[in-house]
């Protein structure tokens, strides 16, 4: 199927030169987004996001563990992403690929920088803290997994409840209340095709892109950035995209 990718790539570039996108969207337009909170009640928190035809499910689980040696008074956040083989004919089962690791780490950085989870509030006693596991499950891949994953993670954390902890044990299924949360962090990803930047690339647009810039924001701060692909960005481009990221980030945040 790779040769077809080349054919489609040509087409996407042709269309972009005429100022259009294959699905007729504006250059700054997200595909239709649906956020379903609490999709997996067994988890402490969960959310499923549809971004166009991309579907990502995030589950949040909490457990007891030991803190990192250099941060003994803080809980632990651990983020993982699975690109399920069912999500795309291009995904194969196996150990985490660089793509899945990148998604997990970018989502993690956003949450951490924005202090979405108050890690200090997860401290229980010396040597014992709450661990928060955020698992990103990609179910259907039609492009822009990072934005979908970040949005689903933010929504899942918003639904998350802290399990009861009594007599040194976790009582699963009973909760002491919602997780103590700070600011929501969302990500906006722009693809650069020739010299045009477009928001929310679809699968086919990603195949044609030269570079990609993800900017994760809270209401008034940039919390994480990640550039991907081998193309380059000018300083002015970065400035424009940062402005756009704040604007579009606000739209995403309103969906949580």
């Amino acid at each position: 199927m790779e040769i077809l990718d080349e054919v489609k790539k040509d087409f996407v570039k042709d269309i972009m030169r005429k100022g259009k996108r294959p699905d007729e969207r504006g250059f700054e337009e997200y595909r239709p987004i649906v956020v379903e909170k609490g999709a997996i009640p067994a988890a402490e928190g969960s959310a499923r996001v549809h971004l166009g035809q991309t579907q990502v499910l995030v589950g949040v689980k909490m457990g007891i563990g030991t803190p990192f040696a250099d941060r003994p008074e803080e809980g632990v956040l651990s983020t993982n992403a699975e690109l399920l083989p069912m999500a795309s004919p291009t995904f194969e089962p196996g150990p985490p690929s660089p793509e899945s690791i990148e998604i997990a780490r970018v989502v993690d950085r956003g949450i951490r920088s924005a202090n979405t989870i108050d890690l200090k509030s997860l401290f229980i006693e010396e040597g014992k803290v709450w661990m928060t596991f955020v698992d990103v499950y990609v179910l259907d891949h039609d492009g822009n997994l990072i934005d979908a994953a970040a949005l689903a993670a933010a929504a899942a954390l918003r639904t998350a409840r802290q399990p009861k902890y009594e007599d040194g044990k976790v009582i699963h299924g009973e909760y002491s209340g919602p997780l103590k949360l700070g600011d929501d962090c969302v990500a906006c990803t722009f693809a650069k095709i020739d010299s045009t930047n477009i928001l929310d690339p679809s699968f086919d647009e990603e195949k044609a892109m030269d570079a990609r810039l993800t900017i994760a924001t809270t209401a008034d701060r940039i919390a994480a950035m990640q550039k991907g692909g081998s193309g380059g960005y000018t300083r002015d481009e970065i400035s424009q995209l940062a402005d756009m990221a704040f604007r579009k980030g606000a739209e995403l945040r309103s969906l949580i």
Partner: peptide, 21 residues
């Protein structure tokens, strides 16, 4: 769209693909 969530239309139809038009 399929699965969960409220039913809604997909986006506007995309154009087809091909080499230089």
């Amino acid at each position: 769209p399929r699965s969960g969530g409220p039913r809604r239309e997909g986006g506007p139809p995309r154009r087809s693909f091909g080499r230089r038009e």
